[in-house]
Write a protein that binds this DNA or RNA. Structure first.
Lengths: 187, 187
DNA sequence: TAGGTGATGACATCACGTGCCATCACGCGT
DNA sequence: ACGCGTGATGGCACGTGATGTCATCACCTA
């Protein structure tokens, strides 16, 4: 057998999520998380930059996905088409089917100002990925930023609506409605 | 003479800004700020919730201004008209004429991840103020959120462009261009 | 079999942020 | 003039988050 049990990172993440659910984020100390995972505090910080990051560890994948999608789109594709298709893929890959977990995380985030800030940073990182994708496609800085920011607005407003609703509407359908609403406002 | 020199809060803020400029945000400790202001660490935290807040102390006024503007707008006013007028007032009241200071603050924010998160939180707070204003005017939740988020996007993208440019264009003119660009994209 | 590698343990250390109580000028009422 | 409440500050203890540094030791490779 190995010297250490495998999957240290995943064990830490699971322990953290369990403790956050049991007693809240602020009330959970890093030593407590590490102890439940059978590791030390120092090892926790080797796997996660800080305590908040446990909740957003895999959000970076969204930016990677976006970068791939934008790099792979046809050179002649319209920005708006890229956005629509990109949001469709994003909804399907990272939101659809995870409603309960995302609702739970949202409640946790709501409970702590620090988590809200981290959430906003992840949102900003996604916007930067989209903006960089447009920049790489040759768009001007202001236009790329405007499109990117508007895209993440569409995502987040749609996800909020989706998480609030109890029916089983598809997230991507809500995104489509939001896009239509946006065009109605500014058309 | 009073027992204490007056304007403790302002002295703390000035001391903090000076030290941030001299040695950077992360390298400046709260005790050092308090000492320069002739106060104690404990008193610093009585005036500012945390070290970051010193840089954003008066950002809350923007939300107040927005709330007043929206409450005072004619009942029949179109949302888009309210936004356009609101952004004009916001630009005039809280940005125009402060270009150098805002540029300096932007550099500080760029140097520290924690400051970026706080900056995003202030931006989110402004969006909430706008959203609440639209909610109070009877708009639906999704529409209010969409309008509010798009409004702050316009502000921030415009301010970024404004701070980047070396000519003396008015911020509000850039806002107008951004709004036109947005309509062009989604019209 | 010797040595390098990488993940972890263990310890020290620092800064942030908060709770708690003491202090003392000021203004107010008597 | 006296006493008293108020409010801002000082001072101290403490928990927690986060980082630097070195030791340890299974595993892999030459």
């Amino acid at each position: 057998m190995s010297r250490w049990r495998p999957d240290a990172r995943q064990r830490l993440q699971q322990a953290a999520l369990d403790l956050f659910a049991e007693q809240g984020f602020a009330e959970t100390t890093v030593p407590a998380i590490a102890a439940r995972a059978g590791l030390t505090t120092r090892t926790f910080f080797r796997h996660f930059a800080d305590k908040r990051e446990v909740l957003f560890a895999d959000d970076a994948e969204a930016s990677v996905l976006v970068a791939q999608l934008m790099a792979g789109a046809p050179a002649a594709a319209e920005p708006l088409t890229i956005i629509r298709e990109g949001l469709r893929a994003l909804a399907e890959n990272r939101f659809e089917g995870r409603k309960a977990a995302l609702r739970h995380r949202r409640e946790l985030v709501r409970s702590d100002a620090g988590l809200q800030e981290r959430d906003l940073r992840k949102r900003a990182a996604l916007a930067e990925a989209i903006r960089d994708g447009f920049l790489a496609r040759g768009l001007g800085a202001a236009r790329a930023a405007l499109l990117a920011e508007t895209s993440v607005t569409l995502v987040y407003v749609s996800v909020a609506e989706w998480l609030d609703s109890d029916d089983d509407r598809k997230l991507d359908d809500i995104v489509g409605e939001m896009l239509a609403a946006l065009r109605a406002e500014f058309g």
